[in-house]
C-alpha cells in the first residue's frame, strides 16, 4: 500500500506540473509597459515554487516507497545530520528564496506604485458602482466638474452626480461606459466608488486596484497595443458582481481624438 501511495503521489505531482510546464494556462499577452516585470517575477516564482513542490512530493513518495511496511526487519535509523540539517537547510533554502524573490521582486511593485504618474499623463476618472463602470473625461476646459451624490440620476445618464445646471465645469465633461484611451500614452486613472467596494482589473494591463468608498485612489499605466480588452470587477460588490464589467478600448491617437470630438458633440 505504501508503494501505491508513492506511485499515486508521483502521478499527481507530474500531472499537476504538466499544464504549468507546457504553458497550457497562461494569462493573456501583456500590453502594458510595466507588466513584463510582473510576468518575469511570476515565472521566477513559478520555477522556484515548482521545483520545491516536485522535490517535496518526490521525496515524500520515495521515503514512503522505501520505508513503508518494511519486511526486512532492519533497524530503524535516523536521517544523517538529524534535525539540525533540516533547520539549517530550511533557513538557507527558503532564506535565499525570500531574499531573491522578496527583495528583488519588490522592484515590480515599486515600479507600479512608487513612481508618480508623469505630469502630462491623461487624467480620466473611473467610477465604480453596482454593477457598472463609468469613465469621465474632463472635456475642453480640462477640469472635472464636482460630484454631488444626491444628483445621481442613472435613468438620465447622470451616473456621477454632476450638476450642470449650476456647475459650469461639469457641462463639458464626457462620460463614457467604455474606457477609451490613446495607445502609448500614460493614463492616470482617478478612482471613485459610488456605493460599495469594487475593483479595477484588466488582465492584459497587469493592473488590479480596489475602489474604496471614501478614499481617493489612483493608478497609472501605459497601454502599448491597440485593441479592446475587458475590465472586470474583482471585489465582491453584490448580486451583479459577476456581470460588472466594461471595456478598455486602446486607440491610435487620431482615432482617440475623433472619438473625443464625437462624444463632445453628443453633449
Amino acid at each position: 500500500m505504501g508503494k501505491l501511495f508513492a506511485i499515486v503521489l508521483v502521478i499527481i505531482a507530474l500531472a499537476s506540473a504538466y499544464p504549468i510546464v507546457t504553458h497550457m494556462y497562461v494569462m493573456p499577452e501583456d500590453v502594458s509597459t510595466h507588466g513584463h516585470q510582473i510576468d518575469e517575477q511570476l515565472s521566477d516564482t513559478m520555477a522556484e515554487a515548482g521545483i520545491s513542490f516536485l522535490l517535496a512530493q518526490f521525496v515524500l513518495a520515495i521515503f514512503v516507497w522505501k520505508f513503508a511496511e518494511r519486511k526486512d526487519g532492519g533497524k530503524l535509523k535516523n536521517f544523517p545530520g538529524g534535525a539540525k540539517i533540516m533547520v539549517a537547510g530550511a533557513f538557507i533554502l527558503v532564506g535565499t528564496e525570500i531574499l531573491a524573490l522578496g527583495v528583488f521582486g519588490q522592484r515590480a511593485w515599486a515600479n507600479v506604485y512608487f513612481t508618480p504618474p508623469r505630469p502630462d499623463a491623461l487624467q480620466i476618472q473611473a467610477q465604480a458602482g453596482q454593477f457598472a463602470f463609468y469613465f469621465r473625461y474632463p472635456g475642453a476646459d480640462g477640469k472635472f466638474g464636482a460630484i454631488y451624490p444626491d444628483k445621481i440620476d442613472e435613468g438620465n445618464q447622470n451616473y456621477f452626480g454632476l450638476d450642470p445646471a449650476n456647475d459650469i465645469e461639469s457641462r463639458d465633461d464626457i462620460v463614457s461606459a467604455e474606457l477609451v484611451i490613446p495607445v502609448n500614452r500614460e493614463i492616470h486613472l482617478l478612482m471613485h466608488a459610488k456605493d460599495v467596494g469594487h475593483s479595477f482589473y484588466v488582465r492584459e494591463l497587469r493592473i488590479q486596484q480596489d475602489f474604496v468608498p471614501g478614499l481617493d485612489l489612483s493608478v497609472h499605466f501605459t497601454a502599448t497595443k491597440i485593441g479592446r480588452y475587458e475590465i472586470v470587477c474583482t471585489q465582491l460588490c453584490g448580486l451583479g458582481h459577476y456581470n460588472m464589467k466594461a471595456y478598455l478600448n486602446v486607440m491610435a491617437q487620431d482615432d482617440f481624438e475623433k472619438w473625443v470630438k464625437q462624444k463632445a458633440s453628443e453633449l
Binding site: F63, V64, F67, L76, K77, I85, V87, V94
Partner: peptide
C-alpha cells in the same frame, strides 16, 4: 510581504522534519 514570506521558514522546517523523519522508519500504512 516580508513576515509573510518569513512564515515559509517555519513551515519549511516542519515539512523537512516530517519528511526527514520518514527516512529510515518503518511506516505502518
Amino acid at each position: 510581504s516580508f513576515p509573510t514570506l518569513t512564515i515559509t521558514i517555519p513551515a519549511t522546517i516542519m515539512t523537512l522534519i516530517w519528511l526527514g523523519s520518514l527516512y529510515g522508519a518503518n511506516i505502518r500504512i
